[in-house]
């Protein structure tokens, strides 16, 4: 069960790390590479706090083995924006109060980023369905949905936000 060399390209930078195959990707990122955006929440693939983008897919990095990720391209919240240049999703989460304690936020934004890559102009229902793998214990989700819709608007070049009506339409999709 010796360590093996695992190659990960994280936020555009390639790393070779020695890790046991059984290590979970979230711990390799946090403890070996000191990339601490992905959080350890439930550690049982429910909460989504550990969400990262792996080869163009949103994955829960607590349920990916280090060895499975060997060779993968990974994007974490650190790769989307930084304090000097926030990603539009980060801007909109700030603007629309899409976070309170902030624990779920890196996973939320990383997941929302992939959702908007696949569906640049989602309905509220599609946002709720697409974000169903991420739990937030503070906000009640309203402002998270609002933030993501506002970010979609901005990314599509619209200045007026259509997100004000959040909460009034059918939420069946999230069930």
């Amino acid at each position: 069960m010796a360590k093996q060399i695992i190659t990960l390209t994280v936020n555009g930078e390639t790393h070779e790390v020695a890790a046991e195959p059984r290590e979970l990707l979230v711990y390799v990122l946090r403890e070996r590479l000191r990339i601490t955006g992905p959080h350890v929440g439930c550690e049982t693939s429910h909460c989504g706090a550990c969400t990262v983008d792996m080869n163009g897919k949103s994955v829960k990095s607590c349920t990916v083995l280090a060895a499975q990720a060997d060779g993968a391209e990974i994007t974490t919240i650190e790769g989307l924006g930084n304090p000097d240049g926030l990603h539009v999703l980060q801007e909109m989460f700030r603007e629309h109060h899409g976070l309170q304690c902030g624990f779920c936020t890196p996973g939320m934004i990383t997941r929302a980023h992939r959702l908007l890559q696949e569906n640049p102009n989602p309905t509220e229902e599609e946002v709720r369905f697409g974000m169903a793998g991420n739990l937030c214990r503070c906000t009640g989700y309203q402002n998270i949905v609002k933030s993501i819709l506002a970010a979609a608007d901005q990314m599509n070049g619209n200045t007026s936000s259509s997100s004000e009506a959040v909460g009034h339409s059918n939420m069946e999709a999230a069930e």
């Binding site: 989504g48 897919k57 949103s58 829960k60 997941r111 959702l115 369905f129 697409g130 974000m131 793998g133």
Partner: peptide, 8 residues
């Protein structure tokens, strides 16, 4: 499951 799980 959920979107993340369905990718895998």
């Amino acid at each position: 499951a959920d979107p993340q799980v369905r990718y895998m």
